[in-house]
Each structure stands twice: as C-alpha cells, then as structure tokens.
Amino acid sequence: MSKILVIADQKDNKIKKSTFEVLSEAKKLADASGSSLEAVILGEAIAQEAKVLAHYGVSKIYTVENSMFKNYLNRPFIDGLKKVIDASSPKLVMVPTSESVKDYLPGLVGATNACGIMDCSAVSLDGGKVQIERPLMAAKAVSKMESSDDLVILSIRSGSFDAVEADTSLSCDIESVDLGTVDIKAVFKELISAQSDRVSLDDANVVIACGRGVKDKSGFELVEKLADVFGAAVGSTRALVENGIAEPSLQVGQTGKVVSPDLYIAVGISGAVQHTAGMSNSKVIVAINKDEEAPIFSLSDYGLVGDLFDIVPKLTEAVKELKAN
C-alpha cells in the first residue's frame, strides 16, 4: 500500500476532535498495511495548529492557508485539496464528516475522478481494495462496500473510532501549498450565525436533546438549563426546528447531525427512525417520555416514564447538587 491522506477539519483554526478519531484509525490502517500517513489542513491561519497533526504519527503535513477560507464556499476546498492530492498521490483519503465536508467532497471526488463513499463507520484495506462499512436505510441497516479504484475518498461518521493519546514528542515536515487563483462562480453573501456559548453538538460528551414534547420556548429553556448543569450540548428533533423553537443547527438525525456522545438524554422525543439514525450510537441513552409505548424506549438504557415538566427541573436540581459536591 502506498499512502493514506487525512483531511483535518477545524473550527476557528482549532482542529476538531473528530479529526483525531480519524487520524488514529488511519494510523492503524497505515501501520497494518505498511503505508505512510499524511495529513492536510486548510484554513485562514492554521500553520501553528497544523503541527498538532504530527502527534498522531503523520509523516507529512500539507497546509493550505488563504483568507478565502474565512467564509465557507466549496470551490476553494475542492481546488486546494485537488492540488494536495495531486502532490501526495494517496490511495486512500479519509475525512471526518461535517456539513462543509458533505458539501465539498462530492465536487472533490468529481474533480479527482475518485471513488467517493460518504459517512463510513469502519474501514479496512485488503490488498488493493478498500472495504468499508456504513449505515443505510436510515441507519436501520449496515452495509459492507468495496472499491478497487486507484483513489478512494471516504468521509467518516463521527464517533466511529476512538482517538488515541497524542504523542507530543513527534514532529514531521510541513509543506505549505499555494491555493493560487480560484475560479469561483458563487458569492458568499452572509452568515446567519447560530453560535452560542454552549458546547457544540460535534464535540459534546453529553447531549440533551428535546422534541415536540417540550411544547414551546419555555419548555425548551427547561432543557437548556439541564444542559447547562451537565455542561452538555443541546440537540433537537426536526419537529422543534420546524416550529421555530430550536435552531436548525441543533437538529439530530438523518437530515441533521450524527452524534455519539457518552450520554444522550432524549426529552419528549418519540424516537422516529429519522431521528434515531443520528443518535443510536450514543454510549448511554436515557429517554424521558410520558408515553410508555414510545419507540425511543426500545433503544434506551434507562427510560423514565413520566411528564418531562415534572422530571426535568428535578433532574436539573439533582445534577446541580451532585456537581457541587
């Protein structure tokens, strides 16, 4: 085997946890197949942060720095990554899934004439073949797929792998690649930011998610309070996003984000497949629902049958107390 290239994902010039998960797995694959591991990071000012990638056993790091990455557009990513892929000529490219990745990857796959497979949960190498596993049918089934293409580009579902401990003694070459001129046929107009101080869904160890059961903004705020005492991220079903009660960026599920925190608490969520597609890999699942027949209970480790308006405030108090001690 020749080479594996990992595309690092960053936010505000900080590398995201999901990148380390992918790097750790890629390193295992590289070692097992006698391949080398390289990484690439793109951003406005990422030269410093790039070094961190070396701590995971990467033998070479490419950086593509440009102010064009300030506001997300797919073209600069496609062009920048195509240059790096041409230079590195890997057999396998792996990248953690994010909304931006889902956007630029199809174009990159087209531009490099690669085989692209999105949202993989396991990867193995078998001679010249890349074999993967990925969920499908709203995560009600898993599939094994294979490609023997010269270049295979995979996006990796978050939480599929565990990140290993960083070895800060390691370092490697860093090569800066010039993006050059990009022929952009799209114009970035505006960012309607939904940033809050709370941890983001992607990085959270605990997610408190709520559904139609919370009814309105005040019910939603109850859940926010619970999230705050946990230091957790807030997630939501599509039903609440539709009602304008929750921010669209909080949606978990087939259309929204895929999360796999250590603890997922589903509050007033029925457990439709399109929702569970995004959370069923969480380590511990708790459900609070007044309907004892709610499907969410069939995948919960602990189910509380009762009214969330009674339970959530009490739970908030109890956790607060626990954390205080």
Binding site: G116, P135, V142, S143, S147, G303
Partner: peptide, 18 residues
C-alpha cells in the same frame, strides 16, 4: 466505482430498564 457487498441489521441496542 463502488460495490455493495452485503447488508445486515446493526447490532440491536437492547431496550434497557424502564
């Protein structure tokens, strides 16, 4: 460019305690 080799049901999560 890719081949679907097989499909299977995921390891079902067991319903825990209620």
């Amino acid at each position: 460019k890719s081949t679907l080799l097989s499909m299977d049901f995921p390891k079902a999560r067991k319903a825990g305690e209620k």
